[in-house]
């Protein structure tokens, strides 16, 4: 579930990046998309490793584990947004310093 939620977040960010390029450039949506895409790719590899050990690629049978993974997925999306917010603040400050 974490992989699915992160992959959806990455797809949304990539869609914004290409549908609204000026907005995406101003707000560094590309950085957010790269974060989520990188994480989703890494979790894909984790999924393949689980398959090799005879476990499912994505845990959907165990409801409790699925709910835990879904909550983790949401926390991962929030952490990504927090890191992106910090990136925006740092870029804004460096632009202000360069202008001054």
């Amino acid at each position: 579930m974490t992989l699915i939620i992160t992959a959806i977040a990455a797809i949304i960010c990539v869609a914004i990046r290409f549908l609204k390029p000026e907005f995406a450039q101003q707000y560094h949506i590309g950085a957010l998309a790269l974060m989520y895409a990188g994480a989703a790719l890494m979790w894909c590899v984790d999924g393949f490793a689980c398959l090799a050990e005879g476990e499912p690629f994505v845990e959907l049978a165990d409801t409790a584990a699925m709910a835990d993974d879904a909550l983790l997925g949401l926390c991962v999306v929030v952490l990504g947004l927090v890191i992106w917010g910090i990136i925006l603040l740092v870029k804004k400050n460096s632009r202000a310093k360069a202008a001054a």
């Binding site: 974060m35 990504g80 890191i83």
Partner: peptide, 8 residues
């Protein structure tokens, strides 16, 4: 991708 993925 690497730093973002590693952090998450």
């Amino acid at each position: 991708m690497l730093w973002g993925g590693a952090a998450l």
